[in-house]
Simulated assay, not measured.
Amino acid sequence: MDTQNNHRITVCTSCKHKGTTCRPGFELIEKLQAVIIEAGDAIAEDFEISGVACMAGCGRPCTVAYHGSRKATYLFGDIDPAQEVGDLVTFAQQYTHLHDGWCSSVDRPGKLRKSTLSRVPSAMIALETSDVRVS
């Protein structure tokens, strides 16, 4: 697989709604996989979906991250598997075409405009030599 075109959606599988034992991450993964398969060519072939035990978004379940090689990473919270799957798929379609992953909140679909927990720029590698020592 060409790592330059690698895209992933990571869903927290530990998040629970307060006062319940419901862990909506597993349901969300299942729904996302089905909708992305159904979308076919509308989403890049290399878009992967996986779960992770914790993304520290416990206060805002269900937490979802978008990652791409050399792209900004997004973390969204308060995602309802019954309501926001369409917004997540639409954002996946957008994200694949953003060369650096960067977009404004007004460009994100539906609830994702207001449920962004974080946008982390892609890693920058310093190529310049420096005499400054880091301790």
Rank of each mutant, 00 (worst) to 15 (best):
V64K: 09
A82N: 12
A53P: 15
T73G: 10
Q93V: 08
V64H: 10
F76Q: 01
C58R: 08
A53D: 15
S69I: 03
D87P: 07
T73Q: 09
T96C: 15
H67L: 09
A53R: 04
D80N: 14
D87G: 08
A56G: 10
A56R: 13
Y74H: 11
Q93F: 07
F91G: 07
L88A: 01
F91Q: 07
G86I: 04
Y95M: 02
R60I: 09
R60T: 09
G59R: 14
G51E: 01
P61F: 00
L75P: 03
G68C: 06
S69P: 03
V64W: 01
P81D: 10
P81I: 11
A82G: 00
C58K: 03
T73S: 15
C58L: 01
G86S: 14
Q83I: 15
A82E: 14
G77R: 08
A53Y: 09
V89S: 02
L88Y: 00
G68K: 09
Y66T: 05
Y74N: 01
D80Q: 11
P81S: 03
L88F: 07
A72D: 12
H67P: 03
C62P: 01
K71L: 06
C62G: 08
A92H: 02
E84F: 12
T63M: 10
C58T: 01
A82T: 12
V64D: 10
L75R: 11
